[in-house]
Design a protein around this nucleic acid. Structure first.
Length: 196
DNA sequence: GTTAAGATTCCG
DNA sequence: GGAATCTTAACG
């Protein structure tokens, strides 16, 4: 059974290739070039979209994210300084930051903010998948996506959704090591997606 | 070179 | 409650 052919795909040789999506649907890099505390709360409800190598396209609405904000934030990897791992976070918003945790789970993040302002949003869940480790696994995200430009990538992108969402904020998960102050910042944003 | 710990998940 | 599993960062 071949891949589902969409209207926005085009035949190139023997393969159907997904066209770059119209700018009024796809979220552009500009969206991410703002403070992470503006970007993160506006992500729940948006569609996280993936085109796999076999041409199949998977989309699910984001339900849970967390903001990691700059060198002061002791829960943010950038607080350790500019290293090979954190380098991408020091670039302008719109690229992908992925890293391996506990030797087995990839964490999917989107860099936000202006150049030299290291921030990122961790995508912790979508409607069909709970948990950041399982999410990356379902979406086939690994180190190959480090630095991917979310504004132009043909295999990973975001789309707007008109579904109304209520967004709640609460403390971030699993970062008690950062100390009480940073662990208590309400920078986790969860969506309650209305299903009428 | 060595080591401790981690933005997690699954099993008992 | 604890293991799985390995990269990163800190230290010698």
């Amino acid at each position: 059974m071949g891949p589902e052919i969409r209207q926005d795909s085009v035949l190139v040789g023997e393969q159907h290739i997904l066209q770059d999506l119209p700018s009024d649907i796809r979220i552009t890099s500009d969206f991410f070039r703002r403070d992470v505390l503006e970007v993160a709360p506006s992500l729940p409800g948006k569609l996280l979209c993936r085109r796999f190598d076999d041409g199949k396209i998977f989309k699910s609405r984001i339900t849970e994210v967390e903001a990691y904000r700059g060198t002061d934030d002791l829960a943010c990897h950038a607080s350790k300084g500019r290293t090979a791992r954190t380098e991408i976070m020091f670039g302008a918003g719109g690229s992908v930051y992925v890293y391996l945790i506990y030797g087995m789970y990839w964490m999917l993040n989107f860099v936000t903010g202006e150049q030299n302002v290291p921030q990122a949003v961790l995508i912790r869940g979508v409607e069909s998948v709970s948990g950041p480790g399982r999410l990356a696994r379902e979406y086939g995200i690994n180190k190959d996506f480090y630095g991917e430009d979310i504004g132009i990538s043909l295999r990973l992108w975001l789309e707007d959704s008109d579904e109304p969402v209520k967004v709640y904020s609460s403390p971030r998960i699993g970062i008690n090591y950062a100390g009480e102050y940073w662990a208590s910042r309400p920078w986790r944003y969860t969506a309650c997606i209305d299903k009428r």
